[in-house]
């Protein structure tokens, strides 16, 4: 035996192993694909509904509502004004519809990430054992090249919106889960002891003490999830998600420099808006939890 050539598996064995796994997965897809699709149908309906609402309503109304929302969340005049200007520029350069699709997509993905991520994070904060199981899975989700898990998703759901949402959520949910876990674990133990001393149940401790105090950290998770969803939009366009990602993909294939830059900048603009608004919200939440003197 020499150590120059690695004693690898024979090609035939490798091929049959791959075929067996792929075959098994194809079976699974054929068997459960339709059921899974049916389960995710409401998600698709929600996405289509938001998309249509944003695209078919008068642009001036949409712009006002979006700017208003940003103002409600951020309460900072500069951010609100920036939002309005950015949206006007986006519309002027002909990217209104794609931008609305992307906003709808990011909104739905973020909602799903919150709805799944917070409960998982809460459970993780309660059990070190669950944490030991979930943490490596999250590491895997964050480091695995996204193209790889696009394959099974597409095999089950085909091309379209739902696989897009699933792919984006897989990519963007880890910070949501991690920061929920962190936020809850960071709650001062003496406050939990005080809650215990007044006879609080576990649920009362969660809703009255842990969640409110973890909220600034959880908001940081929401912020990161939004940013990562936006970043994933371009990749997701490869499996048929419409929006700002598609023109970028087109631009790459055809070497349309300007088209690429314009749509790229639109993504950046939305990212900045979301980021500043959620961060300002997070800061506002923290106002009273900082620096207790005594």
């Amino acid at each position: 035996m020499d150590f120059v050539q690695f004693p690898e598996m024979s090609r035939g064995d490798l091929r049959s192993m791959r075929q067996a796994i792929d075959g098994g997965f194809r079976e699974f897809t054929r068997e459960y694909g339709p059921t899974l699709e049916a389960i995710f149908e409401p998600l698709k309906d929600l996405l289509v509904f938001i998309e249509n609402l944003l695209i078919t309503s008068p642009w001036i109304l949409v712009l006002a509502v979006l700017a208003g929302l940003v103002h409600l969340i951020g309460r900072r005049f500069k951010i609100t004004l920036g939002t309005a200007l950015a949206l006007l520029a986006i519309g002027y350069f002909g990217m209104w519809e794609d931008t609305m699709r992307t906003i709808a997509m990011v909104a739905v993905c973020t909602l799903v990430a919150i709805a799944v991520g917070i409960p998982v994070g809460v459970l993780m904060a309660r059990s070190d054992r669950l944490r030991a199981v979930v943490t490596p899975v999250l590491d895997l989700m964050q480091t695995m090249p996204s193209f790889v898990y696009l394959i099974p998703v597409v095999m089950i759901f085909g091309l379209g919106k739902v696989p897009g949402v699933i792919a984006v959520v897989i990519y963007a949910i880890p910070p949501m889960i991690r920061l929920t876990d962190l936020g809850i674990r960071q709650v001062r133990p003496d406050l939990l002891e005080a809650a215990d001393s007044f006879g609080a149940s576990n649920w009362q401790k969660l809703t009255d003490v842990q969640m409110p105090l973890a909220l600034p950290t959880i908001m940081a998770g929401v912020n990161q999830t939004i940013m990562m969803s936006l970043a994933m939009v371009v990749v997701a366009s490869m499996i048929g998600v419409r929006g700002l990602g598609q023109p970028v993909l087109q631009a790459i294939n055809n070497q349309y420099f300007t088209l690429g830059v314009m749509n790229g900048l639109a993504i950046v603009a939305i990212a900045i808006i979301f980021d500043r608004a959620t961060q300002a919200y997070g800061k506002r939440l923290q106002k009273h939890t900082e620096a207790i003197h005594g």
Binding site: A194, G199, I292
Partner: peptide
């Protein structure tokens, strides 16, 4: 019983106050 006992029979004051900052 313990939760009920803590709710109705006891109350506690802490060295570092342990007030809810929010």
């Amino acid at each position: 019983q313990l939760l009920e006992f803590r709710r109705s029979k006891t109350a506690m004051v802490f060295q570092k106050f342990a007030l809810m900052p929010h």
